[in-house]
Amino acid sequence: MEITQPPPARPAPGAALEARGLRVTTHGRVRVDDVSFTVGAGRVVGLLGPNGAGKTTSLRALLGLVAPDAGEALVLGRRYRDLPSPARRVGAVLDAGGLHPSRTGRQHLRIAAARAHVPAARVEEVLAEVGMSADADRRAGSYSLGMAQRVAVAAALLAEPRVLVLDEPANGLDPAGTHWLLGRLRAFADAGGAVLLSSHLLADVARVADDVVVLDRGRVTAALPTADALAASGGRLEDFYLGLAGTSSDRTGVRR
């Protein structure tokens, strides 16, 4: 029996990132199932959920790193792989540990700049912006987690993209670094950019996000403006999050 697929749905008006009925199965396990949400230009959206909820899988699907079994993952109205010069449109932080340990931070950024056809002078600008100029010639293998994270953020900003997709970008940052990062994300969105921020740090999300999407066991359990979530929980995003059925702070899962 031949299975026909419906024609692709049009992207939502103004959507910079869009998941539509996304289903991803890896190694025989359903990681996300019927996940839908949008991130509009000028918005920061916090993607929340316990370990194994499907947050990272959703980000990877949007970035074309895993193929969905059903649904669509769109960036600026197209699949990531169909974007012209995707590095100039989307900046991502998925794994600060992805730096090559024998390369310096400056070398890592110069390689990224060459691949994205970005002028080399931009490397020095982003190093200064993330506070890594003084340590840029140290090998990444000697970096703390926070230092590696700063270089990863610098790489995401390097090509001055329109969209940022970030998985736990504040992980390892000290309070000053976190304060800078949240301010930078807010300014990025206020200038018309779109940010999808996956984080376990609910207080940080409450400070910067316009909207929140909560995943649990691979499904969306809530998607609403942050102000509405705070109003429903006495001003504490943590209380809203923990109050959702099926979401527990001490539950671990197999999905990622």
Score class of each variant (00 low, 15 high):
residue 95 D to Y: 08
residue 25 T to E: 14
residue 83 L to V: 03
residue 16 A to M: 12
residue 67 A to Q: 14
residue 106 R to N: 09
residue 47 L to Q: 11
residue 118 V to W: 13
residue 81 R to E: 15
residue 79 R to Y: 09
residue 121 A to K: 13
residue 19 A to M: 11
residue 47 L to P: 06
residue 100 H to F: 03
residue 34 D to L: 05
residue 104 T to Q: 09
residue 68 P to I: 01
residue 25 T to W: 02
residue 25 T to L: 07
residue 30 V to D: 14
residue 34 D to V: 04
residue 30 V to Y: 01
residue 77 G to L: 07
residue 108 H to V: 00
residue 121 A to W: 04
residue 66 V to H: 03
residue 114 A to Q: 15
residue 83 L to S: 09
residue 83 L to P: 03
residue 24 V to K: 00
residue 112 A to Y: 02
residue 107 Q to W: 09
residue 59 L to I: 03
residue 108 H to Y: 01
residue 103 R to Q: 10
residue 105 G to N: 14
residue 118 V to P: 12
residue 103 R to H: 10
residue 80 Y to K: 04
residue 97 G to C: 04
residue 91 G to Q: 09
residue 61 A to H: 01
residue 90 V to N: 05
residue 20 R to C: 08
residue 55 K to G: 03
residue 35 V to T: 06
residue 105 G to Y: 07
residue 123 V to Y: 02
residue 95 D to H: 11
residue 52 G to K: 10
residue 86 P to M: 02
residue 28 G to N: 08
residue 39 V to M: 07
residue 124 E to C: 08
residue 68 P to M: 11
residue 47 L to E: 11
residue 41 A to V: 04
residue 80 Y to N: 05
residue 85 S to A: 15
residue 93 V to E: 08
residue 80 Y to L: 08
residue 86 P to F: 01
residue 50 P to C: 13
residue 97 G to E: 14
residue 91 G to A: 12
residue 77 G to R: 13
residue 89 R to P: 07
